[in-house]
Design a protein around this nucleic acid. Sequence first.
DNA 1: CGGGGTATTGACTTTGCTCAAGAAGCGTGG
DNA 2: CCACGCTTCTTGAGCAAAGTCAATACCCCG
Lengths: 258, 258
Amino acid sequence: MAISELFIQHLQKCGELGANDLARLRAIPTTRITALPGTVIVPRQDNPGRSAMLTQGMAAQIHPALGRAGGRVISGLHIAGDFVNLDGLVQDRMTHEVVALGCCEVEFIHHEELRDLFDRYPVLIRLIMRRLSDGGAIYRRWLVVAASLRSSAHLAHLICELYTRLAGIGAARNLRLSLPLLQRELAEVLGYSSIHVNRAVRDLRDRGLLHWNGSEIGILNWPGLVHLARFDPDYLGPDLARNHARLTDTADSCLSES
Amino acid sequence: MAISELFIQHLQKCGELGANDLARLRAIPTTRITALPGTVIVPRQDNPGRSAMLTQGMAAQIHPALGRAGGRVISGLHIAGDFVNLDGLVQDRMTHEVVALGCCEVEFIHHEELRDLFDRYPVLIRLIMRRLSDGGAIYRRWLVVAASLRSSAHLAHLICELYTRLAGIGAARNLRLSLPLLQRELAEVLGYSSIHVNRAVRDLRDRGLLHWNGSEIGILNWPGLVHLARFDPDYLGPDLARNHARLTDTADSCLSES
DNA sequence: CGGGGTATTGACTTTGCTCAAGAAGCGTGG
DNA sequence: CCACGCTTCTTGAGCAAAGTCAATACCCCG
């Protein structure tokens, strides 16, 4: 199967590619799979010799919790367009596994092919380093958020981040997003008990900030949510930060009109 | 001033360098400074055109806390041998600043020089990617620890990590380490109030796990500390994990002898 | 209509925060 | 050498946030 267009779009952002280059890229063999909810996309402790890109759906980085057995911690969420195991390219083992949340589509590329790409288009190396660095920025932000916000604001921050990222790839719009996470899984992301997450959800609903029905979320008051969460999208990179600025302006004008 | 030997050691780990290469490396101009406690080594929101390596002391990544003004969060600690702003090489702005904790020595290298190095020794690119990826692994671990351990165990985990990392560069040995952090700063690392940190410190002392005098820490019961913290050094990379295994064996045999 | 998992709610416990005050260390100036 | 002021460390008491346990409601699906 051929390389996905999402992948190509990423490459294009990073450097000029001629028609020739595009043809060559499209000739690269890849493997595409569909993963049902709960499927392990990238196993722990493994050097699979290939990297994966999520082309549809959401996936989570899963760690076993320290202490109580059976517990899990989610250290990051992937959406379409993300490399899910970039580390595998440079590290011998993964310290976590990646699991599909809803239904996913994943595309695998062998490391040899990637390295070939790098040899041919050295500018892509910058793209990979950039991705690694971006990932670090998100982790840092999660640490800051976990340390300084309490449950409702913490949850609100997660919603703001996900909406911004999903809107950036066109997978969410009009202040609606679909979030294929159980409350138990939200708890694993936020580091709370699922009961506590439930109360945080109710709190956001009670404040009239959003609308939450199963996996469908509608944001009713974007500026309010952003303010509660102290959300500042700078850490997501200049592109998404710009989108966010536009969105906030629109929401503000909507508010002032109403 | 010439490039530091620490830097060269890192490069050597990554590929074979001949006498010729070494001479060329030593000819690269760098700037070395001494930073007093509290000095900002790398400012926020800045693309300084150079990267820094810590050659002595400890430094912290500082973020403003969300919510209460004036609060801070520390998202990572650097020790000698760490690149303190690798992100700056690939990212236009830093989302945090880096501040000296004790007295530090820092060495700056201009990005041009670094890029020259990469052109000449492409294998070094892997080193940088490796570093970025390692950093991500540490952030993930901190998220997991924050989500699953409570105060004493959380603090214990930090001590275990720091001792392992410091021992890896020869800056700690014999289960003694010096930690130039105030309890307030520890609180900023762990996400607690400084009062709560104080109680956690006392708890570890009361359990006879360690000895804490100002900035000098002596670990009295390494296996006990490791167990309480659920410390598993895998996330620090194979080198340090091996060191830890050796250390734990020694400590075990010490215990069984006594 | 029943069964399994998820969501929701209540009552109670544990953990951690805040405020406040005292103790200990340390550098400065008298 | 001592007194003073500063900062950090330590401890106590009360409060707020989050966890646990248990029970019920809901919902999808067979």
